[in-house]
Amino acid sequence: MNHKSALHTFLEGIRDEAPLLLAVIPFGVIYGIVALEAGLTKLQAQSMSYIVFGGSSQFVASKLIAEAVPASLIVLTVAVVNLRHMLYSASVAPYVQDLPFRWKALLAYLLTDEAYAVVINYYQRQEEHRYSHWYFLGAGLILWITWQMSTAAGIFMGKVLPPSWPLDFFLPLTFIAIVVPSLKDCPSVVAAVTAGVSSLIFYNLPYRLGLIAASLVGITTGFVSGHWRKR
């Protein structure tokens, strides 16, 4: 294979990721607005997109910051929300295990929900070749660029949108649009339902601990359900 093969594979990743960007753009715009409403500066809001690069955890962190929740609980909550990335990493690890560390580090940074969705499908349907990681890079990089631009757009629009717009109403709708398509089997449905019910039960816990409790309940029930289903 030549250099054009690497470029072709890179462009394939961009092409396959493109349809998912239609949902990423409004999600990023809303995050930018919500971050400013939470009291973050423009630089802080944009920096979170650079450093964290995780929509769900960025929303959660912004909300907790707005409520002056202790930093230790914010870190713990974000860690729980991002536990799914451990599963993503374990899933793609066999396909990238022979790459140099610099590649592994870069691809790990770019591994998000939307990138994983197309990358794992590519790895499972294609014969592995020396440039397959360029597909991963293409999918992850176009997603990263789109997220940064949409965040910046939200930060800018935060000054021009009427304060009467019910942005808090659109936020859960965005999460629903992301979660529902991923509910493809019994364990994922069980995890989502139990986490949702638990969030209502634990709603009044201080420092938003209900979110952590509901996440742990959902993860546990999903794991147990998957275990029993295999048996």
Rank of each mutant, 00 (worst) to 15 (best):
N82Y: 02
N82E: 06
L83P: 09
R84T: 06
R84F: 03
M86T: 14
Y88F: 15
S89K: 04
S91Y: 06
A93C: 14
P94S: 05
P94Y: 05
P94T: 02
V96I: 11
D98S: 14
P100K: 08
F101W: 12
F101Q: 10
W103A: 03
A105E: 04
L106A: 14
A108R: 03
Y109P: 08
T112V: 14
T112D: 05
T112S: 15
D113K: 08
A115C: 11
Y116I: 00
A117M: 13
V118R: 01
I120H: 13
Y122H: 13
Q124I: 10
E128N: 15
E128D: 15
E128C: 14
H129D: 13
R130S: 13
S132W: 09
S132K: 09
S132P: 04
W134N: 11
F136G: 00
F136V: 14
G140Y: 03
L143K: 11
W144T: 10
W144D: 06
I145L: 15
I145T: 13
T146F: 09
W147D: 00
W147N: 10
Q148G: 13
M149Q: 13
S150P: 07
A153E: 06
I155N: 01
I155Q: 01
F156W: 15
K159P: 10
L161H: 07
P162A: 14
P163H: 13
P163A: 14
W165R: 03
P166F: 10
L173Q: 09
F175P: 01
F175S: 02
A177P: 04
I178L: 15
V179A: 08
V179K: 03
V180D: 06
S182T: 15
S182K: 05
S182D: 10
L183S: 04
K184L: 12
D185Q: 07
C186I: 12
S188I: 09
S188H: 14
V190T: 07
V190L: 01
A191S: 08
V193T: 12
V193S: 02
A195R: 00
A195I: 01
G196H: 09
V197R: 08
V197D: 06
S199F: 04
S199E: 05
S199W: 07
F202D: 00
N204G: 12
Y207L: 00
R208Y: 08
G210N: 01
A214F: 06
A214K: 09
S215I: 00
S215Y: 07
L216E: 00
V217P: 02
V217L: 03
T221I: 08
T221D: 06
S225I: 09
